[in-house]
């Protein structure tokens, strides 16, 4: 029952409503080797399938992560919805069974908050899929090789968008596209355009503009 002295995360996953891994990272030796001769990827998929079986249908509030136990690991997650395949994604943190679930929940809520900020308030599957690179960066800023790097949602999203982590205007935490025209801050090198949009985003915005211009 004794806790590991240093809190470590064994996996961070971003799963869609059907349990598909959109992004994720496994740390340390967890699911690396197995006697049954399965590849790491097969084991991961099997593990995620087990997670999905247990969490499907459970919606966890962004500030109140849910806990389950899968294959002897403590699994904590935020998000999810009952809507179809395009519903909200879940952010899942996996830790050793002896890890404090509160610590894991704290981490998970922090990352979910950051994800929501980065995706402009929604954590819809397509939105996340369009901005996968931001998700990759978020995971990297959140956790380095299993050690927690940063937990604060606002700081995390700032770091992902290559903004300075000084305290800032809350309105800036929105969609990347809202940040166009923000004056370049000190400490940001040339060529940074935090408002860069993916093609998909640009398309959507154009479409919305067109629709609103037709008066509907």
């Amino acid at each position: 029952m004794s806790a590991p002295l240093i809190p470590k995360v064994e996996a961070i996953l971003v799963l869609d409503n059907e349990g598909q891994r959109l992004a994720g990272k496994y740390y340390g030796d967890f699911l690396k080797t197995d006697e049954s001769g399965k590849t790491a990827e097969e084991m991961k998929t099997a593990f995620e399938k087990q997670i999905q079986q247990k969490i499907s249908g459970i919606v966890a509030r962004p500030d109140a992560a849910e806990v389950i136990s899968v294959m002897g690991k403590a699994v904590v997650f935020c998000g999810g919805s009952n809507a179809g395949p395009n519903g909200d994604v879940r952010v899942v943190h996996v830790g050793p069974a002896s890890e404090s679930e509160l610590v894991l929940a704290y981490l998970c809520e922090g990352m979910y908050d950051a994800l929501a900020q980065l995706m402009g308030g929604t954590t819809e599957r397509t939105m996340v899929l369009d901005n996968l690179e931001l998700v990759f960066l978020l995971i990297d800023e959140h956790c380095d090789g299993g050690i927690i790097l940063e937990t604060d949602g606002t700081k995390l999203s700032a770091a992902v968008l290559l903004r300075d982590d000084e305290p800032m205007d809350p309105t800036m935490g929105g969609m990347p596209s809202q940040n166009q025209g923000v004056p370049q801050q000190q400490g940001i090198p040339q060529g940074v355009n935090p408002g860069d949009m993916t093609i998909g985003q640009a398309f959507r915005q154009a479409r919305e503009q067109w629709l609103s211009s037709t008066g509907i």
Binding site: A60, D63, A64, A65, E66, V67, V76, S100, E101, L102, L104, A105
Partner: peptide, 9 residues
């Protein structure tokens, strides 16, 4: 507690 993680832990 309203938080499941807290109750669980």
């Amino acid at each position: 507690s309203p938080k499941p993680a807290t109750r669980y832990a």
